[in-house]
Design a protein around this nucleic acid. Structure first.
Lengths: 310, 310
DNA sequence: CTTATTATGCTCTTGTTGAGTATAATAAGG
DNA sequence: CCTTATTATACTCAACAAGAGCATAATAAG
């Protein structure tokens, strides 16, 4: 009896927060919704009045941004003790979500709320070749860090991880490893969040805007999830306007993935999968030959277990 | 002030539960750990003493089964109100995990705790051809259900979903759709969990052992996750003994996926990826030509972002 | 010494993917 | 009007991966 009520006590000393990685891609810019001068992701408490976690999230996001959420997916739930204050009597469970929305809402959100996500991860954008910062800063710093491992096999492991993550030694760049890369930099003490509690460090940090708590890690999780998802589910269309050209679609995919794709192969893939249909309209905004406008064929979702792009 | 403390109140009226889908594969049998005469998945409260969610789970699973967990992955978190009692003053957040363990622990767990997971999903085992129950019961019942839709497009959608999920009309069987299939059957009122609250229904149900609450749905989620995961991550090895033959490995994969694979192609794939290395030992337990014994090459995990099997 | 059973090597065909070439349709500048 | 730049779109080809079969090797059981 006594033990049971004790347990009740413990169980109830817990709160729940919903954290959103809300993504849009207006004209090929990968943007994420932030608050507090881009130092945090929007979040809100989960309350008893909410029907479910998902609807709780939907409620306050639509209320705050004024735009409907096309797609929601749960990211991760955590409750590590060191994330809130030590010895705190209560504890918060954080449940993070990835949400996609069609347009960048300019009203109802303060200017500067939507940020290009590469402000937080400058090393993740390989659309114009590998960012200079990798060769100039990250690679030497990680090699130095790997060298400080205690045992030989520990050093080899560190070096191996770094090489896989960042594509050292002619290894291919894998855009899906966003989270692993951030965690590696964190472990190596190269991002601000990792050195906050320490004394003033002289160690130079890798550029990239930091965030409160582990919000940047959550954002990395969201980006990684989205980058893998677009390959086997047609979720990009949640970010597109009702009618779009194939190049606009390609630009959106490239913005999210952070890499460029072969134009002709991209079109072949999209068309052979019947993901889109022509609207009959043309777009001549680009200067060159006018492009056909397409719309997403929502019917494919019912027709088969459908793949994504690339 | 008043509003704030009100919110505090609401936030703290929440508890958290950890639910485990714990999987093993002793000699090619896909088994899952259950409690309460196989009507529930093992679960335990998340307490303040736990370092993190994951370690909390690890703690009580290892304590209860006496075997270490090789691999843990978060499945899903939910808190829908209708899952606990209506109008209850408190609410529980359930966080489910998928765990893989190497052996079937025969001690420390009561006999009958480990169950072949196809007891719960008889329609999911296609290793010996499509189960008779699909053609005999499921297909006709789902076609009947699809026909009761209100509008024409609603009926078409239902039929489309059913056909994709269960492979009607010569469509291919997709073993990864375990969750969608369960949810379809639930929606159609063909599983026990869906008709519990209703009056005694005359409707015949699809065979398959039911579970408390939505534990069967969670199990379906775990199976689906594992079936997709083995294709791009070498997680099967977490279920294998230290040394194994390629056929044993293949049997394990087939047991999980519920489909058979081409033997020679399977070997080609495993070997060309350098996932295993010979131990030098042979096994002659099968009767035929003795097979080489292999072990998993743990080093591959550091060498590259590695793919799985098939 | 035959048969059954399992292991393992090799081939062949097909489909997918990466990457290149060629041509069409427009705008802008002289 | 003609050239150039830019974008759209069609085709082709080589490399590779995946599905499926045949052939042969090595054992146990009768």
């Amino acid at each position: 009896m006594g033990k049971d009520s004790q347990r009740q006590q413990e169980r109830h000393a817990i709160g729940a927060d919903l954290i959103a990685v809300l993504v849009a891609a207006p004209n090929g810019n990968p943007v994420v919704l932030t608050i507090k001068d881009a130092t945090a992701l929007p979040s809100g408490p989960f309350e008893l009045g909410h029907r479910s976690l998902q609807s709780g999230l939907r409620d306050w996001v639509e209320q705050q941004t004024g735009h409907p959420l096309g797609y929601i997916e749960q990211l991760y739930t955590f409750a590590d003790r060191d994330r809130s204050g030590e010895d705190s009597p209560s504890r918060v469970i954080s449940i993070s979500y990835l949400g996609l929305t069609r347009e960048e809402p300019s009203h109802a959100t303060p200017p500067g709320s939507w940020r290009n996500w590469y402000e937080f991860f400058p090393w993740e954008d390989h659309r114009y070749g590998a960012p200079q910062v990798i060769a100039d800063l990250i690679e030497p710093a990680l090699r130095r860090w790997a060298g400080t491992g205690e045992h030989e096999d520990r050093r080899a492991k560190r070096l191996g991880r770094a090489a896989v993550c960042f594509g050292f030694d002619d290894r291919p760049w894998n855009e899906e490893l966003t989270l692993q890369r951030y965690e590696l930099l964190y472990e190596a003490g190269l991002v601000e969040e990792a050195v906050r509690k320490e004394e003033a460090t002289s160690k130079p940090l890798v550029p990239g805007r930091a965030m409160d708590g582990d919000h940047r890690r959550i954002l990395a999780t969201g980006i990684a999830r989205l980058r893998t998802k677009i390959k086997y589910r047609p979720v990009v269309f949640e970010l597109m306007p009702p009618a779009f050209t194939l190049l606009q679609l390609q630009r959106a995919v490239e913005a999210l993935a952070g890499v460029t794709v072969h134009k002709q192969n991209f079109r072949r893939l999209i068309e052979q999968q019947d993901l889109v249909e022509e609207t009959g309209q043309m777009s001549s905004e680009t200067g060159g030959r006018p492009a056909k406008l397409f719309r997403f064929r929502h019917a494919v979702l019912d027709e088969r277990a459908v793949a994504g792009t690339k």
